[in-house]
Simulated scan of single mutants.
Amino acid sequence: MNIKNKTIVITGGAQGLGFSMAKSFIKQGAHIALIDMCNQQLDDAVIELSSDINKVISYVADVTKEDEVIKTFNLINNDFGSIDILINNAGITRDGMLVKVKDDQVVERMSLKQFQSVIDVNLTGVFLCGREAASYMIENSEVSSGVIINMSSICRAGNIGQTNYAASKAGVVALTTTWAKELGRFNIRVGAIAPGVIDTQMTRAMKPQAQDRMIQGTSVGRFGSADEIAHTAQYIIENDFFTGRVIEIDGGIRI
């Protein structure tokens, strides 16, 4: 699929990896629909992305709320005339041990709220947005193909202190392979990206010692860049033979 003149919907698109992907795609002639929860950040993002040629519109929505997702995707389809590509990027972390033990006594447990909040955004949100995007892509399948990209993580294999996050990101890959099988007959491809540690505001806020340890765990000796994630998404979009698979982009991290 050629990115030029395609409508790309990006959840969590007002900042971080989502915004970096939007900046990359707007340069290539795409039209961008940004979904996020912060009105001010969305306004700032639209101003920075503004183009005389390409359409950029923002939408305030909580991806965990079914009614908001349905309404938002209906608005996007009406505003742009089609939905060609969805990037399910919105996600959160609420890290903690399953049980915290001190002197052989359990002193703390991961709460259901801590677990469920991550599942709601990272997995249920992907399901809801994917379902709505696929519906509009199918309706337009006679004249255009569709692509859905789900953001997973290398932590999907399991990571200490991330019961909730790892479970959600493993589920995202399961959705990806299932949807690829179900939606292929409608000319819709589905792929996933599993990043390692990427240079973002979150990693920059870490202590230098922690950053050094993470960098030393990679084969390339550095964090990944947001531009490299955008390039990976571009590969999935442009390679019409790619579907049902996950790309790990982690700098050869050694676990």
Rank of each mutant, 00 (worst) to 15 (best):
F25M: 10
R254S: 13
F25E: 01
G221W: 11
S168Q: 10
I57C: 00
K181L: 12
I10W: 03
R94C: 05
N187F: 13
V246S: 14
V126W: 01
A33G: 11
P208Q: 10
I229A: 10
F73S: 04
N122W: 04
S152W: 08
D52M: 00
A230T: 11
N5C: 03
A180F: 07
S144T: 15
A45Q: 04
A157E: 14
A233W: 06
K169P: 09
N239F: 07
V147E: 04
V143D: 13
Y59E: 05
S117C: 14
R245H: 15
G130Q: 06
I138R: 15
Q40R: 12
D104P: 00
I119Q: 14
N39R: 12
A33Q: 07
G81A: 09
F223I: 10
Q211P: 06
Q114P: 00
Y165M: 08
G224D: 12
P208L: 07
D199H: 12
Q114R: 11
L17V: 14
E238C: 04
A194K: 06
E108G: 02
K55G: 00
I10D: 05
A192C: 12
I237E: 08
R131G: 03
A233S: 13
K23S: 14
S117H: 01
T243W: 06
T203D: 07
W179K: 01
D120R: 06
L49M: 02
R131K: 15
D67L: 10
N77M: 00
G252C: 09
V69M: 01
T124K: 15
L123T: 10
Q216N: 15
I85P: 05
I83P: 04
G81I: 03
N122C: 08
V147P: 01
L128K: 03
F80A: 02
T124S: 13
A170Y: 05
V107C: 04
V220D: 07
N77D: 13
A157T: 12
T243F: 09
L42K: 01
V173G: 02
V63A: 07
I53H: 10
A230S: 15
E248L: 05
T203P: 06
E108R: 13
F25H: 03
D79S: 14
R109K: 15
I249A: 12
I247K: 03
A90S: 11
N5H: 13
F80W: 01
Y235A: 12
M202D: 04
V143Y: 13
I138G: 05
D104L: 10
P195L: 05
S20N: 15
A205L: 11
